[in-house]
């Protein structure tokens, strides 16, 4: 199977869905003529034209809301945020409008829109540009939130998001854009609410989402090499809907869980996952559930400090040893 970058996978997903459905269009800052601030949308303007690949002014609130309005009338917008940090300018449109209009209209209207872009720290751009808001958006009934960790997942989940009839937030990662994974040539879709066991194991469950999955996989390798421990790595892939069954099944099997995320810990995604585990697998636990999250501090600019903020394999490894 050919390997492609995460960036290319996202690009292919958008192109294939635009090819399939004329009502799908893409808009965002620098997506067209500049080929995307991170070159994710390269070639799309040439292929689909300016009617469907649209450069916007720096007006996130305006174009996100415009997308919601267009979706009400039946179009299927893909709204790119240059980064999810900038979605905070548009949060009212996403939460009050995209998420709630279906409910408030008693089901008369639905909003088939995708909001997408990278959401990550780790690139020395400071506190305002490093937000990981999957927990804020996942807190809102009416929104779906997915955080693909690989090119394979990114492509399959973005295609699903575009065909989904409700608002979906797709959170990518600039650090992953250049990484390559095997991606099949043939079309595939990845349904939401299905976690993926990225590594099978029997001794401890490492449950992660987004780029933290890679730290968990690396920690699992270290546990195997250095301690002979078989860790299972569960990639949540989708935050809402959350695949509770896969989480519970894994923890019931291993009896131990370490939750790994780049999200901030306080009211973070893994606070929810931890709750699910105590609720559904309490009697199977041989140790308390542990979390390895970003530190509970704003993102520092300094490179050395920022590396300490984000979880890495070493921290995951040490945390696992503490409960094994």
């Amino acid at each position: 199977m050919a390997k492609i970058t995460y960036r290319k996978a996202v690009n292919q997903a958008i192109a294939e869905e635009m090819q399939r459905d004329d009502n799908v269009f893409l808009m965002g800052e620098e997506v067209a003529e500049y080929n995307g601030a991170y070159k994710v949308t390269e070639g799309l303007l040439d292929r689909f034209g300016a009617k469907r690949v649209i450069d916007t002014p720096i007006s996130e609130c305006g174009f996100a809301g415009l997308g919601v309005g267009a979706a009400m009338y039946g179009l299927r917008p893909i709204v790119e945020f240059m980064t999810w940090s900038f979605s905070l300018v548009a949060i009212d449109q996403i939460i009050n409008n995209a998420a709630n209009i279906r409910y408030m209209s008693g089901g008369l209207i639905h909003i088939p829109i995708v909001f997408r872009g990278p959401a990550n720290g780790g690139v020395n751009v400071g506190a305002t540009h490093s937000h990981t808001p999957e927990n804020y958006y996942a807190n809102v009934p009416g929104l779906k939130v997915v955080c693909p960790a690989t090119a394979y997942d990114a492509k399959g989940m973005l295609k699903t998001a575009i065909r989904d009839n409700d608002p979906v937030c797709v959170m990518e990662n600039t650090i992953l854009y250049n990484e390559e994974w095997e991606v099949p040539e043939d079309e595939y879709l990845i349904p939401f609410g299905q976690a993926d066991i990225k590594r099978k194991g029997t001794d401890i469950s490492l449950i992660a989402h987004g780029r933290a999955v890679l730290a968990a996989l690396e920690a699992a390798r270290m546990l195997k090499d250095e301690e002979g421990i078989e860790a299972e790595v569960v990639d949540l892939r989708s935050i809402r809907p959350l695949d509770i069954d896969t989480i519970v099944e894994s923890v019931r099997k291993t009896g131990r869980a370490v939750l790994v995320e780049e999200n901030k810990p306080f009211c973070g995604v893994d606070a929810q996952v931890s709750h699910v585990i105590q609720d559904r697998a309490f009697d199977y636990l041989d140790a308390p559930v542990k979390r390895v999250s970003a530190l509970d501090v704003p993102q520092p600019y300094n490179d050395t400090l920022e590396k300490m903020v984000l979880p890495d394999a070493q921290r995951v490894y040490k945390t696992c040893l503490a409960i094994l």
């Binding site: 020395n124 751009v125 400071g126 506190a127 305002t128 540009h129 520092p300 600019y301 300094n302 400090l305």
Partner: peptide, 8 residues
């Protein structure tokens, strides 16, 4: 103190 960077 190195916490803000170029933009801040």
């Amino acid at each position: 103190k190195g916490k803000g960077g170029s933009m801040h």
